[in-house]
Design a protein around this nucleic acid. Structure first.
Length: 599
RNA sequence: CGGGGCGUAGCGCAGCCUGGUAGCGCAUCUGCUUUGGGAGCAGAGGGUCCUCGGUUCAAAUCCGAGCGCCCCGACCA
């Protein structure tokens, strides 16, 4: 029997001043967590209890498709060197040395280690497919930990890895994860959406994130309310409405116009009395090409051209030029590549590469510019623009690609769908990813196929952020008094509140009821503290327990109150019917979660 | 890494400008009363004022350096 009077549940009336998002404030106030350092948290009794429930659900579902391992958190340098990620992970990796001076790191993820096991143990296609998973602490030296448990330096991850003989096998492993993830998040009571995600510059054919909408989230999701299309903004595309082009002036060829003081898009649009959509915006970057086989890293100029009213999507641009990193150009670099200053950069007369990441400038134009005409663009000369600029005729490019971010209200990209996209903030709770051959190839994992020929297994990797499930659940269900969790992941299903423990009859009724519920398999917390009723009600509302049973004066009439935290609804129930009542409520919740059409 | 803010009792804060006994609310402990939405009265305990150095007769307060934490941006397999 869990008696509140004997437990350590340090609730706070006030939250620490630096807690901003709801889940952070409530996790601290409810005594779930305490901070130890930036992005480093102690999980106390209630927090750990809830996380354990989440882990149990994850484990139960994952065991249907995979096998649980447990790999070390402290890892030698060598496998990371082999995959190329010792350098590639950069400062995000915690690194340390042992007493002999050998390099070690703390695991951020375990592709290398799982692949090393596969390499040394898997020999035949007959051993495939394999799905291996673990639930374990991950360490990432985040540049900016924030928002309580949302972005931290140590967290718990369920990560799994699949090894298949071919693409069809990988598709199946991916689909298995997709199905199991939906089951897991549903059982955890999350209102989630699966979205298309960026698969990164280093290959991988399909990538899907599981997101929960919340303003505390750090990702932006574009979705179509009509057809259900949903994608991370890093990846989302859209249909643009047709535009009316400007009339050509003069002989229709580029004409240099004096545009004093028009460095900003808005100024240019005002000057020419046109929409910013008829202007060509230029954003200039330096792109990092990672040196291979010990060669030095090199930086290359990139000119990104797009519509004046569009925003560069750096993730897409990074993918388009196949670079490792981007940074914006400095003034000297602008002068070197464009011969003109910021605010007046343009594509006319620029020399560019035939292929990305060679010497010289890479010119990337957004696809939405390709069929346009009579545009206005900077002349690479202070206070001058060209008009009558037509892409293809007046300038060419290294490559044309989708490098812009979609905006809310643009057309859904699905064929025949007339919907308009909406954009919302979300937090990522899971990610499934077709890795391809990156790790199996670089680390030399091979098996013999049915013909006795050596082939490289194809891999997938799949993650779930355990703490983020808890955080997202709190974000989606809270009010000014606290939060409520689904009974599947709440630290307790029901709290039995004895309103006045100095009344022996109430105390005994509470004890008896709690014992009955507990012996029926419910997670019960008996609030037997010698506190005023109000204090106990406030605490119960705060700490996330979905049901409360008030054992008070009505006990004399054989009644207690069953209060639902989410709705504050209270019903009087006869003592001998409480168990059946609560059990059926919990079962209803589970059924509702599993059949909720919004999922 | 760029910008901003903060560091005084467990939590929330005042005091700092203008140097001189370290305070308030909540929490904690004791007693009495109270007992259905964070009770009342009386009493008590609790502080390296982030650290180090400097100025001064005297530093929470002024000066310098460092550390830590938060927010915005950049970054984020």
């Amino acid at each position: 029997m869990h008696r509140w009077s004997k437990l350590f549940i340090p609730t706070l009336r006030e939250a620490p001043a630096d807690a901003e998002v709801a889940s952070h404030r409530f996790l601290v106030r409810a005594g779930y967590i305490r901070q130890l350092g930036a992005g480093i948290y102690n999980y106390l009794f209630l927090g750990q209890r809830s996380l354990n429930k989440i882990i149990s659900i994850v484990r139960e579902e994952m065991d249907k498709i995979g096998q649980e391992f447990y790999l070390p958190g402290i890892l030698p340098r060598e496998p990371w060197e082999q995959s190329g990620r010792w350098a590639g992970m950069g400062d995000n990796m915690f690194r340390l040395k042992d007493r002999k001076g050998a390099d070690l790191c703390l695991g951020m993820t375990h592709e290398e280690i799982m692949t090393s096991i596969a390499r040394s143990e898997l020999r035949s296609y007959k051993q495939l497919p394999q799905i291996w998973y673990q639930i374990q602490a991950k360490f990432r030296d985040e540049p900016r930990p924030k928002s309580g448990l949302l972005r931290v330096r140590q967290f718990t991850m369920k990560d799994s890895y699949s090894f298949d003989i071919n693409m069809a096998g990988l598709d199946k492993s991916f689909d298995l994860h997709d199905a199991v993830y939906r089951k897991i998040f549903t059982r955890c009571g999350l209102k989630f959406v699966a979205v298309e995600a960026d698969s990164g510059a280093m290959g991988g054919s399909q990538s899907q994130e599981f997101m929960v909408y919340t303003d505390a989230g750090e990702d932006l999701i574009a979705s179509c309310p009509v057809c259900g299309y949903a994608a991370n903004l890093e990846k989302a595309t859209s249909l643009l409405d047709p535009l009316v082009e400007l009339e050509a002036t003069g002989d229709g060829t580029p004409e240099l116009v004096h545009t004093p003081g028009c460095a900003a898009i808005a100024d240019v649009a005002e000057f020419f009395k046109m929409s910013p959509a008829s202007d060509i915006k230029c954003v200039a970057y330096m792109a990092l090409k990672r040196g291979t086989k010990g060669a030095a890293d090199t930086w290359h100029g990139v000119a990104a051209f797009l519509r004046g009213d569009h925003q560069v999507n750096e993730t897409k641009l990074l993918g388009a030029v196949e670079a490792a990193e981007l940074r914006t150009m400095q003034a000297e670099e602008l002068e070197q590549y464009f011969g003109g200053p910021a605010g007046y950069l343009g594509p006319v007369g620029l020399k560019h590469n035939a292929k990305p990441l060679e010497d010289g400038l890479i010119v990337v134009v957004d696809r939405s510019l390709v069929d346009r005409k009579n545009l206005v663009a900077g002349a690479n000369k202070h206070d001058y623009h060209f008009r009558n600029v037509t892409p293809g005729r007046d300038f060419t490019w290294t490559l044309a690609a989708d490098i812009r971010s979609v905006n809310e209200g643009e057309g859904c990209p699905k064929d025949g769908c007339a919907g308009r996209l909406v954009v919302g903030k979300a937090v990522e709770v899971g990610h499934i990813f077709k890795l391809g051959y990156k790790y199996s190839e670089s680390m030399g994992a091979r098996v013999l196929d049915v013909n006795g020929k050596e082939v490289t297994p194809i891999m997938g990797s799949y993650g779930i952020g355990i703490e983020r499930i808890l955080t997202a659940a709190i974000e989606q269900s809270n009010d000014k008094n606290g939060f409520w969790l689904p009974s599947s992941i709440a630290p307790f299903t029901v709290v039995v509140t004895v309103t006045n423990v100095s009344d022996a009859a109430l105390r005994e009724a509470g004890e008896a009821l709690a014992a009955e519920l507990e012996s029926a398999g419910l997670d019960v917390l008996l609030d037997d503290r010698d506190e005023r009723a109000g204090v106990k009600f406030k605490d119960a509302d705060l700490v996330g327990i979905p049901y409360r049973i008030n054992v008070g004066k009505k006990v004399a009439a054989g009644l207690v109150e069953v209060v639902t935290r989410s709705t504050a609804n209270s019903v009087d129930v006869a003592l001998h019917e409480v168990l059946a009542h609560v059990k059926s409520r919990v079962q209803e919740d589970e059924l509702k979660e599993l059949s909720d059409p919004s999922l």
